[in-house]
């Protein structure tokens, strides 16, 4: 019986102690924020949506290679010898047209590897974190400064170049063979 009343007494007393604490908490200022109107200030290095400053991008593929989930897609077209694409702001010469630089932000795991390897520091994470979109395609970001027809023209140019090169190589090879055959004939005749 004594145990029974002891239990009741201890329950009531410990609850009273707890209630005193919660009562104190009532008079503290709230720590919550009214989200869409008020926001926390993010730290400098906060990881949000990736952004690429294409003017500085040299198309080195380092970010695409280190990405653990392969969410960066890059296509480049080599510049012609007489073309001058300028330099990135850190002094690295740009030698290729960046016809495609796509980032799939749905696949991105926000690991920050790509920004650490970037040699020109053109790829960085913004403070923007509200990445909700209504269709899946809108989560894929395109950073290339070439419009689709321009990119297509550049790609075609490269294709043609490689084709002409291959043709020239073939022709040169054929000529060489012919010459060799001729020579062989001549020596045989002689």
């Amino acid at each position: 019986m004594g145990n029974y009343f002891n239990n009741i007494f201890r329950a009531i007393s410990t609850i009273a102690v707890g209630m005193a604490e919660t009562w104190k908490a009532m008079f503290r200022p709230p720590i919550t924020l009214q989200y869409p109107n008020e926001r926390w200030q993010l730290p400098v290095n906060a990881r949000g949506i990736l952004f690429n400053n294409v003017d500085d991008c040299i198309g080195c593929f380092k970010c695409a290679r280190i990405c653990p989930v392969q969410c960066i897609y890059i296509d480049t077209v080599k510049a012609l010898p007489d073309e001058d694409l300028g330099k990135a702001s850190m002094g690295n010469p740009i030698r290729q047209h960046l016809v495609r630089f796509d980032i799939d932000m749905f696949k991105c795991c926000y690991c920050d590897f790509c920004t650490t390897v970037c040699p020109t520091e053109c790829l960085y994470m913004t403070e923007e974190y509200e990445n909700g979109v209504f269709s899946r395609e809108n989560g894929i970001y395109h950073f290339s400064k070439y419009s689709p027809p321009e990119a297509m023209a550049l790609r075609r140019r490269e294709q043609e170049e490689t084709m002409t090169k291959a043709l020239a190589k073939e022709a040169a090879l054929a000529a060489k063979k012919k010459a060799a055959a001729q020579k062989g004939k001549e020596t045989a005749e002689a």
């Binding site: 952004f51 897609y73 799939d104 269709s135 899946r136 395609e137 809108n138 894929i140 970001y141 395109h142 950073f143 290339s144 400064k145 419009s147 689709p148």
Partner: peptide, 21 residues
């Protein structure tokens, strides 16, 4: 699949060139 898609257009709202399918 999205790699095969072709249509690009400029979307000034997002500041980059964004897909619109």
């Amino acid at each position: 699949d999205w790699q095969k898609y072709e249509t690009f257009s400029r979307n000034p709202e997002r500041g980059h060139h964004v897909f619109e399918f």
